[in-house]
Amino acid sequence: MQVLNYIPVPLVFIEPDWNIVAYSSEVAVQFSLSSSLLDWTDEESKRKLQRLIVPKSTQKIELNLIHKDGTLHLYDIYQKWQEDRYGYLILMEKEQSSQRLSFQLQQLRQQLLAPPEQRKQPEIGKPVDPQIEELASKLQWMEDLFLQIQPDLLEDRKAHFISQIFLHLKDAKTIIKNLEVKNKSQ
Rank of each mutant, 00 (worst) to 15 (best):
T41N: 07
T41E: 04
D42I: 02
E43R: 12
S45N: 05
R47Y: 08
R47V: 11
R47N: 14
L49G: 01
Q50E: 09
Q50W: 04
Q50R: 14
R51P: 00
R51W: 10
L52A: 00
L52R: 08
I53V: 15
I53T: 07
I53P: 00
I53Y: 00
P55Y: 03
P55K: 06
P55V: 03
P55W: 02
K56I: 07
S57E: 04
S57H: 00
Q59H: 08
K60F: 05
I61P: 02
I61G: 04
E62P: 00
L63D: 01
L63V: 03
N64M: 12
L65P: 01
L65D: 04
H67N: 11
H67M: 11
D69Y: 03
D69I: 04
G70P: 06
T71Y: 13
T71W: 06
L72K: 12
L72G: 07
L72H: 06
L74S: 13
L74F: 07
L74V: 07
Y75W: 04
Y75H: 07
I77F: 02
I77A: 09
Y78N: 11
K80E: 10
W81M: 02
E83V: 07
E83F: 09
D84C: 08
R85N: 12
Y86R: 11
Y86M: 03
G87K: 04
Y88G: 11
L89S: 01
L89G: 02
I90A: 13
M92I: 09
M92L: 15
E93D: 07
E93I: 04
K94F: 07
K94D: 10
Q96N: 11
Q96G: 03
S98T: 01
L101P: 01
L101D: 02
F103K: 13
F103T: 06
Q104M: 15
L105N: 10
L105P: 00
L105V: 09
Q106K: 08
R109D: 06
Q110C: 06
Q110K: 14
L112W: 06
P115Q: 14
P116S: 09
E117W: 14
E117L: 04
Q118H: 13
R119I: 02
R119K: 15
K120E: 08
Q121H: 07
Q121I: 06
Q121A: 12
P122N: 02
E123G: 11
E123W: 10
E123N: 10
I124D: 15
I124L: 14
G125I: 03
G125M: 04
G125P: 01
G125F: 04
P127D: 01
P127M: 01
V128K: 05
V128Y: 04
D129N: 12
P130F: 05
P130E: 07
Q131S: 09
Q131F: 09
I132H: 02
E134D: 07
E134M: 10
K138M: 06
L139R: 01
Q140P: 02
Q140L: 14
W141D: 02
W141R: 10
M142V: 07
M142H: 00
D144Q: 14
D144T: 06
D144P: 01
D144M: 13
D144K: 11
L145T: 12
L145W: 06
F146Y: 14
I149M: 09
I149R: 02
Q150C: 04
Q150I: 11
D152L: 09
L153E: 13
L154G: 00
L154I: 08
E155R: 12
E155L: 10
D156P: 00
K158S: 13
A159T: 08
A159H: 10
H160R: 13
H160T: 13
